[in-house]
Structure formats: C-alpha cells, structure tokens
Design a protein around this nucleic acid. Structure first.
Lengths: 222, 222
DNA sequence: ATAAAAATGGACTTAATAGTCCTAAATTGT
DNA sequence: ACAATTTAGGACTATTAAGTCCATTTTTAT
C-alpha cells in the first residue's frame, strides 16, 4: 500500500514514511538543542540511524529538512496546546495551563526556550518559506488562546467589549518573551513573571467590570 | 599613546582600537541581519575592509568575536535606552518610548527582531560566556525600565505596593516576545499589541487605585 | 512468483570556512 | 632619528559539511 506524499507528490510506502518521520524527529531534537546553524546533516544521519542517500531521497537539501522540522515542531505544539487549551473556559484553567508550561520549562532551567520560538527566530530572516510556516503556526496557536478567551467571555469572566484577538496576541507575546528571557537567564522566573502579568491583566478586566459600568469604554489612542 | 585592552591585557594604540571597533561593528551588522551561524569570518573581513590576520590578532576566533559583538550590541542598546528612558517619569513618556521602538521596527517590517534578543536566543545554548553577557545586559535594560516605574510610583502614578521588578520583567517580556512575533510575521502589529497590553496593565494599576473606577481597562490598539 | 519500482548504504567529490604563517609596513617611545 | 614593537596584508592549510553517484536490497503490484 502506498500513500501520496503531500509535499512533492511522490508515493511513499509505509516504511518510507516511517523513515522520513524518523529523520524529521531526529533533526527536530537536534535543532531544538543546538539550533539550525550548529546542526549538520551528519548529525541528523547519526541520530536517526539513516544513510545520507536516504536523507537526500526524502529531502532536497538542508533547507527542505528545516522546513519539515518547522512543520513537525508546529504540529507537535499545536496538538499539545489543543489538548491543554481545547476545553479550558475559566481563569483557573488558564492558570493551570501556565503552571504546566512553566514547570516543564523549569525542568531544563529554561534551556532551549520555546521549540517553535527559537526556531522561528533563527530561521525567519534566512528562509522565507520557513518563516511563513512558523508565522502560520503562531496564528494557529494564538487561535487556541483566543478560543479560551472567547469561552471566558461567554461565561462572563471577560467583558463583551474586550478585544479577544489583542489579548491573545499579548498573551502569546508574553509567553514567547518569557521563554526567551528564561533561556538567556537559564532560569524560568522571568517566564513565569511575564505570563503572570498577562494573566493578571486579563483577570483584571473582569474584576473592574462587575456590576459597575457607569461609562462606556473610552478608546485609547495608540 | 597606548591604552590597555580590557579584554586580554594587551596594549592597543588608538589605531588598533579603531580597527578593532571597525571589525566588531561590521560583525554586529552582519550578525544582526544574517544571524551568527550564517555570518562567516570572510564576510566580516570583506565588510570591515580588514585582513584576516588583523581579525585573528584582535580576536582568538569566531567565538571571541561573537562575544565582543554581544557586548557591543548591548552597549549600543543600553546607551540608546538610557537616553530614551533616563528621564521618563510619566505614562505618556512611556508611551512615547513605545511609539519610537514600534516606529523604528516598522521601517524594516519587523525584520531582524531585537538586535540583542535574536542574538541571545541563537547564542544562549551554544556559548555560556556569551549567554551570561546577554543575560547581564537584559538585567541592565530592565533596570532602566524599573527606574521609570519607580519614578511613576514616586509621582503617584503607581501604587506603593506595586512590585516594580515584576512589572519591569513583564514589560521586557512583552517587548521581546513582540519583537519575535513581529520578526516572524514581518509585521510590527503583534509587537505593538504586545507592548500595549503590558502598558495597559501598568496603567490600570493606577486607575483602580485612586478609587475612581471611571473606565474599564480595555486596550484599544492596533 | 516475478518484474518493476522504491528504498537503502556508504564511498566519493566539491565547496566553504575556520584557522595558520610569514613578510612587509607603520607607529611608538626614547 | 631610529630601534623595538605593533599593526597590516594575504597566501596557504586543514577541516568540515553539503551534496552526488551508483551498486545493492527490499517492497510492491500483478
């Protein structure tokens, strides 16, 4: 049984797909730890236990492999976040989500940062296709956050006039900035603090809304 | 007249220092645009108009040069931010600071991100000395932000119990995360939105403190 | 079962990049 | 002014990494 490879229209057997996946997974791990620039194809070959011609059979070159790694890392994160956020509809749930991310990052003392963020930062000014893919993945991720915020709004925990998309962008920014500061400091604290500020802001929109709305929201000049 | 080179205790004449500075400046520019991994020493030689032996005379190797670039980039940013933030003591002043950063980043459509942030992200898991230097620079930068927040507090724009350091960390996180998202999206919007959320939070601490909850803290930007 | 197609292994080639070395020129302090 | 020292120039080497090629094995579809 063969299945069509989405990427280049070639047919791949189950075995071929498995090999391809093994290459991408190994490359993703190496790149997460070492970065794109410091990861050689020989590293990937060694780590995946695959030969060079196999690698070049599945990928046109290093760039193509890196693009596949972006997709792979993105899929993993989106799946993880869908599981973690898909049914969250309370501030408490959002705080538990934060706790899980912080705790997980604490295990490595902040090292490697966000798998998608670090990769995006390194690749964005080098490879436009990879940059676009990463950008799209951030959008998907942010949509999951926006979903939570919408449910908060529906449950009355956020005022109807709150701009969900902007809050989601702000939360993602705090998350990514926090990851980066934690990576540089080798200490999760700034990540925790950064997310907490975003969550405190989101929470505060509720607290000051309850009961008293004497005046409509005033537009602030940007 | 000779002056002691701080780095390795060797004496450098004025001419030597100029050459060294020229190398670092050229390397910093290239690295900002291309990243560390994609910048070769031949690139640096070409851009600085200096010979290879000069480069190796001043720096032990690529790692040493990168470390010098981290210092250089950091000094530039700290100086810029000291000028921009040193006397800011109002929310309006903080907003003007935000406007300048956003506008400046808009000129390149977000490309290259934060000169220090991108560098730190790429280097942090490879070179511990460079990581520490970058980490220290972020601390200095954050202290400038904390200085502003302290002045806000002294002026009554922030409540006495506000945790200045945490607010400064959150603001820095929002700034860095915003830079990164803007770099990936090639669009400043997420950077503006991210910082605005942090500023809205800081601002909201005041409004709800003085007893007059006239308007909900809704940020209306982008 | 078997021919055609796909997948694999790994040696080989080429290009690039980091780093070395030696000669020449310029600068400095006395 | 001049000897000592520093700075500059650039060819050369070694290494590393990307990418190619082809013979062999495995899988697939009939």
């Amino acid at each position: 049984m063969t299945t069509l490879d989405a990427r280049n229209g070639r047919r791949l057997t189950a075995r071929g797909e498995k090999t391809r996946a093994r290459i991408v997974a190994a490359a993703a791990d190496l790149i997460n730890v070492q970065g794109v620039g410091a990861t050689t194809l020989d590293d990937v070959i060694l780590a995946s236990g695959v030969s060079k011609s196999q690698l070049y059979h599945h990928f046109a070159g290093k760039d193509a492999l890196v693009r596949a790694v972006v997709d792979h890392v993105g899929e993993r994160i989106i799946q993880r976040e869908r599981d973690a956020l898909g049914h969250v509809s309370t501030i408490q749930g959002l705080r538990r989500w934060r706790d899980a991310l912080v705790q997980n990052n604490a295990l490595r003392h902040g090292a490697y940062g966000c798998a998608l963020g670090s990769l995006a930062s390194e690749v964005s000014d080098q490879d436009d296709a990879a940059r676009r893919a990463a950008s799209q993945l951030f959008i998907e991720w942010q949509e999951l956050l926006a979903g939570v915020l919408h449910r908060l709004q529906d449950g009355g925990a956020l005022p109807p006039e709150a701009s969900i998309d902007q809050l989601a962008t702000g939360l993602m920014g705090a998350l990514q900035g926090g990851y980066m500061l934690a990576q540089t400091a080798r200490d999760v604290t700034p990540m925790a603090t950064s997310i907490d500020m975003a969550l405190a802001h989101i929470e505060s929109l509720h607290k000051h809304e309850v009961g008293q709305r004497q005046r409509p929201a005033v537009e602030q000049v940007q």
